[in-house]
Each structure stands twice: as structure tokens, then as C-alpha cells.
Design a binder for these strands. Structure first.
Lengths: 209, 209
DNA sequence: GATAAGTTTGACCAAATGGTCAGAACCACG
DNA sequence: CGTGGTTCTGACCATTTGGTCAAACTTATC
């Protein structure tokens, strides 16, 4: 209910610059490993100036995490219960891969948080995320029962989609070294591979009941 | 060539306790996020005592990483060029999943290091790991050419195996929350799911040339 | 059980880190 | 332009952190 003032031009610009820098630093070094000096440097501001816009280091981190949640859930929400099942799931895979390509820092921020036991993200995982996953798992199960999707464990199916796509963001350093010659095409190659992988998994085999 | 003295009883015990504690702390908080006080606490030793056994914080980290490399590569080495292709790769998948179950801290240590751009692991990834991956990728390709393994990109195949299996160690916190009711059986369920996923991917379809 | 080697610790240090604050500089607007 | 709010900074602070060291305490060996 607080009558919050509208942001000034400078506030908008600097808050954005700080969050941008904080995302880079937190996603590489984790919360504890990141320092305000690094963030200030990268944002082109002084350390006390950071703390003029955000009351503390944790508040920057929390802001980033809650901004992240919606972007992270959107591709899952977009699965259409009225669509063609195999194509809907494959489209989800490709959307997730696209996220890994376009927002690798966000993916790593998330990875860092989970690896550390999700100390600041538990609530959201237990809440919105779990509800949504349960809902989509139920949708997958109903598709499997009508025979329009091959039967398998819907939760582990979702995990395998997350794992394979996020791998290209989180393990970027490893992927680049191993694929050195084809560095520039590796996302396109991954898309082809993953579409095959999941199409074979999901396409119902007519002979089986 | 240095004539290194044999370790005393106490040295053996305390070095092991320190590495054990360091593994726990580094794997949760990353290198920068871990503190010597935490490690000392967990090991039941004083901070100066840690530094009697290891000259610095980085030396503990490096020791853990190089101990890790061999355990990490072994399952890949064990793929037998003389074996039945589909079964060999599936056995590799299950071995990797077993590693995620038995050594989750090691997996997270590795994940932390790669997420941060592998500052202390580059050499080994560029060296031994890349050579071994190239070798096994070539083996997969030869199997694909003789028709005993379905055709696909061997590098992305390997990535997808790593990603899906390590997910259960690295994203443990998330997995446990989403699967709460079946927490205790989730590795067994994952084994069934992943075997199906990769069997469908790898089994050659007779009708296709 | 003396003695030399191995082990442990409290006290300490310099650097780094998150954060504060008074005041200076800047900007929008009448 | 001047004035009131906004933005920025240098100097500062308390705490944490990796690391040192001399001295004390154990342990093994003869």
C-alpha cells in the first residue's frame, strides 16, 4: 500500500545496469563468490552507489531470482493441452534449448542456486514450479493413456528435457572445448539431435497396446 | 624425483578427514564461497591445523579435482569396443547414473567448476578428457556405420548421457521437492526411464538404410 | 624415560568485504 | 537562475578471511 514514486530516468538506467552486472557476476561465481566490487566495476558505478539503488547484496540476488522465475516457467506454461501431443512436447524441448542459447547467464544463476541446495529459491520451487510441473505431468499422463504419446514416467521425461537443454548453458565451457571445430553450429546440431532423441522416445509405437 | 617420506598414521587420517570435509564444503558453495573455517569445523580440526597438512586453500581444491578426474573418466573408459554396441552404451548410462547416486558431492564439485568457466580444470578437460571423448565418439561413429547402432551425432549423444545422469546429483534439491512422494525410489525410476530413452534412441531400425 | 620428530594451537596479521554516512555534485523545474 | 530533491563519492568502519609463527604438546624410537 505504500505510495511508491515513479522511477526517474536515471534510476531506471542504473538499476538496469546493476542487475545486468549482478547477473553476470552471480551467475559465474555464485552468491558468496560474487563481490560488490566486481559488480560495481562491471556496472561502471561506485560501490556506495550500488547501495544507493539496492539496500544490500542479497536484495540484488533476490531481485534477479524472482525476475527469473517467470521467464523460466513460460515455456512450460505454453504447452497446449489442445495441441498435437508429440509436437507440443518437441516444441517445448526446442523452446528450452533456445532459452539456454539466449539466456545462459540466467540458466547458470539458477544452476548455482540449486547446486547450493536452493537456499533462497525453495519457496518458489515448492510453490509455483511444483504446481505447474504436477499439472503438466498429469497432462502428459492423460496423453499417454489415450495412446497419443508413448508411455513413460512424465516427471523423469521433464527432468531429461531440462537436463539436456540446460546442459548447453551450464556446461558451456566444457561443451565448447570438446566441440571446438564446430563451436559456432553447436546449438543447431543440438536441436537436431534432441529433436530426434525425444521424437523416438515420444512417438507411440502402433504395434504395442 | 624428491624422496618423499612415507605418511604417518596421523597424517593419513587427518588428510583424509580434511579432503572429506573440503569436498562437502566446496561442492555446496564453490571455491570462493567455501571458507577454511567451515572446512576446519566439519573436519573437527583447527584452521591452522588444516594449513599444516595443506599449504593453502587452493591446494585442497586442486587435490580434490585431480582425484576426481580418474573416477570421472573410468565409466567412459570401460566401454568395450568388442561388446554389443547398444548394450555397451546403455551400460555406460547406468554406470553414470550410479555415479550420480553414490558420489553426488563429486558431481557437484565438478559442476561448480565448469559453471565458473573451469578456471582450474581447463587443462584436464582440454587434455585427457577431450582425447577420450574423441576416441569414444569415433567408436560410436564406427558402430553407426556398420548399422549396429542407430545413427546420430556421437558428441551430442555423450552430452545427453552426461546431462541426464548428472542432473540427479547436481539438481538433487529440485528433484527431491518435485518427486516428494517417491523420493526413495527415484534413482530406480530414473534408471528405468533412462534405459528406455536411450534404448529407443540407439536401437537401429531395420527398415531404414 | 630421554630425545627428536611430528602435531596442534592461540595469538596475530594484512587484505578483502559488506555496509554507512556526511556532504558534494548534479538535475529538474518553476 | 535558484532551490529542493536526486544522485554520487571519499573516507571510514566492523567483520571475515586466508595465512603465519613461535611455542606447546604428542608420539615414536632407542
Amino acid at each position: 500500500m505504500s505510495t511508491s514514486r515513479p522511477q526517474t530516468r536515471i534510476q531506471k538506467k542504473n538499476k538496469a545496469a546493476i542487475l545486468e552486472a549482478a547477473l553476470s557476476v552471480f551467475s559465474r561465481h555464485g552468491f558468496r563468490g560474487a563481490t560488490l566490487d566486481q559488480i560495481a566495476n562491471e556496472a561502471g558505478l561506485s560501490k556506495p552507489n550500488l547501495l544507493y539503488y539496492f539496500p544490500s547484496k542479497v536484495s540484488m540476488h533476490q531481485t534477479l531470482l524472482s525476475n527469473l522465475l517467470h521467464r523460466w516457467l513460460d515455456p512450460l506454461i505454453a504447452i497446449d493441452p489442445e495441441g498435437e501431443p508429440v509436437e507440443e512436447v518437441l516444441a517445448y524441448v526446442l523452446r528450452k534449448l533456445e532459452m539456454a542459447r539466449l539466456f545462459p547467464r540466467e540458466s547458470r544463476l539458477f544452476a548455482n542456486e540449486i547446486v547450493q541446495g536452493a537456499p533462497n529459491f525453495m519457496d518458489q520451487i515448492e510453490g509455483e514450479l511444483k504446481v505447474l510441473v504436477d499439472e503438466k505431468a498429469a497432462l502428459f499422463t492423460s496423453w499417454m493413456e489415450t495412446g497419443s504419446l508413448a508411455k513413460s514416467d512424465p516427471y523423469h521425461l521433464i527432468f531429461s528435457i531440462w537436463a539436456t537443454t540446460q546442459h548447453y548453458a551450464d556446461y558451456d565451457a566444457q561443451v565448447r572445448i570438446i566441440l571446438r571445430p564446430q563451436e559456432d553450429t553447436h546449438f543447431a546440431d543440438a536441436a537436431i539431435y534432441l529433436e530426434t532423441l525425444f521424437r523416438r522416445m515420444l512417438t507411440p509405437v502402433p504395434g504395442l497396446k
